[in-house]
Amino acid sequence: MPADQTEAAAEGHTATASRPDAGSRRGRRDAAALALKDVPHEPGAPKPDPILVADGIKRQFGGLTAVDVDHVELQRGAITALIGPNGAGKTTFFNLLTGFDQPNSGIWSFNGRSLSGVAAHRVARLGMVRTFQLTKALSKLTVIENMRLGATGQRGENVFRALFRSVWGAQEREITTRADDLLERFKLDAKRQDFAGSLSGGQRKLLEMARALMVGPEMVMLDEPMAGVNPALTQSLLGHVKDLREDGMTVLFVEHDMDMVRDISDWVIVMAQGKVIAEGPPDSVMGDQRVIDAYLGSHHDAVLTEEEEQEVLAKAEEALERERAENEETAQ
């Protein structure tokens, strides 16, 4: 078993084992705010302790340039939001960083290790785990099997050792214990034996996040964690995202809901037409004229009338639906 796998597995284990108390939740948030205090509010700003650094990432589909990012850094231990209008290239950028797609040019590194040309599964093993915009719950596997799948460095995943339960049985029990702990934390323990396909949209999002944690990541990348989630569950999901930071993980997420972005993120990166156009803490970014122009078109007032809000929402929904349809098309 490669060393990085063992480490990642071990780290994930301790991270979930030592849950922080409510008091330290503020602590991590303040620490992140403090670290980012002196960072200039401009695209490509250097961070004091970057976990991910990307340079000159470019991806073209035919004649269309989907992503063209000069330079971007992500602060370790912070929650960073990636926002931008539809077609801004956020998901493509996610795909590139996590090895699910290869850029035409560009270099990027995670923890100082170059990830150019590194396959998606290796990126995950290095500690950078993602979720998907359209949840990928493995519907014909049970919830607990979904969770167990997430654990890395499993002896029984080797075809020869798989034949003998005595070789992997003990480890399987450990993994199951850890999975059960996480399920309890995500309030999915009652659904343990259900097929993942029978869960609601929000529960699938929770399952996907919990399953990602089984990998023992240092950094979690969430592609629209709130999309399609029942409002009753959003608060709990938000809490879970914040908990990730408290557990010492770095979070990058794509989101459309500005209130949510303002609520949980320490830093916001704005993309439009494939480029990073602005960076900064949530409040400052949302006041930025470039962002307002790119994101909301003419609706530049911070406070929108109810009518305007409805209109923006309808537009966003329409665009989302289109993107989703596209995705489905691609998935076929």
Binding site: F61, G62, A66, T91, T92, F94, N95, F100, D101, F132, Q133, E326, N327, T330
Partner: peptide, 14 residues
């Protein structure tokens, strides 16, 4: 050599 075929386009995954 060319999985998308002679005239096919590359598509986004995920």
């Amino acid at each position: 050599v060319r999985p998308q075929g002679i005239l096919g386009r590359a598509q986004r995954v995920g």
